[in-house]
Simulated scan of single mutants.
Amino acid sequence: MIRDRGSVKWVSMMLPEHVQQIRAWKHESEEELPNELTEWELEELQQTIQFAYDQKLIVTLKTMVEHNLSHYTGIITVLKTSTRELSLETDTTIRHIPLDAIYRAQLENNYCD
Rank of each mutant, 00 (worst) to 15 (best):
I94P: 04
T77Q: 15
W10R: 00
I76W: 05
N68G: 01
L88E: 02
E108R: 13
A52S: 10
T60S: 15
T60V: 12
I2T: 07
I102F: 05
N68S: 04
S7G: 07
N109H: 12
R3P: 06
H27Y: 03
H71T: 12
S29Q: 15
R3W: 10
H96A: 12
F51C: 05
H71P: 02
F51A: 05
K62Q: 11
E44K: 08
L15N: 14
E85R: 06
G6S: 11
V59L: 03
L61R: 08
Q106I: 07
N109Y: 05
T92R: 10
S12I: 04
W40L: 04
L33T: 10
Y111F: 11
R5Q: 15
V19N: 09
F51W: 03
K9S: 13
A105P: 08
N35Y: 04
C112H: 13
D91F: 09
S87C: 13
T83A: 14
L45N: 06
E66K: 13
M64N: 08
L107R: 10
S29L: 14
E36F: 08
G6H: 12
I22E: 04
L57G: 01
Q46I: 03
K62S: 11
P98I: 00
I97C: 01
L57K: 08
Q46M: 06
E28A: 11
D4M: 09
M13T: 09
I102Y: 03
L69S: 07
T92G: 04
Y72A: 11
K9G: 04
C112Q: 14
K9L: 13
Q106Y: 01
E44S: 00
E108K: 13
H18K: 09
K80R: 15
V11E: 13
Q20W: 05
E44H: 09
Y53V: 07
H27L: 09
W25N: 10
A105C: 08
W25V: 06
S7L: 14
K26P: 09
Q46W: 05
L99S: 08
E36A: 04
E66Y: 11
E31I: 07
E31W: 00
H71G: 07
L45I: 06
H67I: 08
K56L: 03
E44Y: 04
